[in-house]
Amino acid sequence: MIKILKYSFYDLMRSRWSYVYFLFYLLLGLVLLFLNNDLSKAVITLMNVIIILVPLIGTIFGVMYYYNSKEFTELLLAQPVKRSSIFLGQYLGVSLSLAMSLVIGLGLPFIFYGIFNSDAIGNFSLLLITGALLTLIFTALAFVIALTNDNKIKGFGYAILLWLFLAVIYDGIFLMSLVFFEDYPLDKFSLITTMLNPIDLSRVLILLKMDISALLGYTGAVFQKFFGTNLGIILSSLMLILWVSIPLFLIKRISGRKDF
């Protein structure tokens, strides 16, 4: 697996898109710091961008990489390598190179700005960690979708739909149900609903850490009340890790049975 990972990582690190993705974050970090001049505000703005953009890029890159390397994967399958090693290796190659673009691209401007001497270092690291986790989650989901769909167009379609659902539609349904059932106690409902969506969960995770959950309104208040800040963060992190491990398990399982 490490060998496959090594070479797909090499391959991706030299791809134009990795640079574009890296430069985008570099630019975003610089612009935000110059315009805002306030680390905490910059972190919040970044959070809003990251939470939507990272899942989108993760899914698209994951699906694209899988379909583009299909013929090469066939060649690898004929080599004395376990199937799961091939796909997990490729998955890690994609997700780690994406995560690296994110962490280095945003890290550099913040380091130059002096993040190490500031109170925002904790919030900022958490932002990068959740960003990396979201990359891992959505690339894994993309691989699951690509493995189950031999038709490229369908695969892309499902991947975009998944992103659209988790990033946009899910929240809409959630809010509408809150309005619709406002006469009932909704604490547990909203808690569970938030836990089930990795994007919402990451947002809550960061906002809890920043102690500005009042901004989040209802969901944040519920989270604050139920968990207190520490337990909330631990539970949310566990949930995110679960979001990585379940798709990984599926990749292993589906690739083991698939015909190529």
């Binding site: 299909k70 013929e71 090469f72 004929a78 080599q79 004395p80 390598v81 376990k82």
Partner: peptide, 24 residues
């Protein structure tokens, strides 16, 4: 999967990771 150490296979379509060199 270890038995594939004894097989050399030439696939029908040749397509390789674009950013690697032939040597790599």
């Amino acid at each position: 999967w270890k038995y594939r150490n004894n097989i050399d296979y030439l696939p029908q379509i040749a397509n390789f990771p674009g950013n690697l060199s032939v040597k790599e």
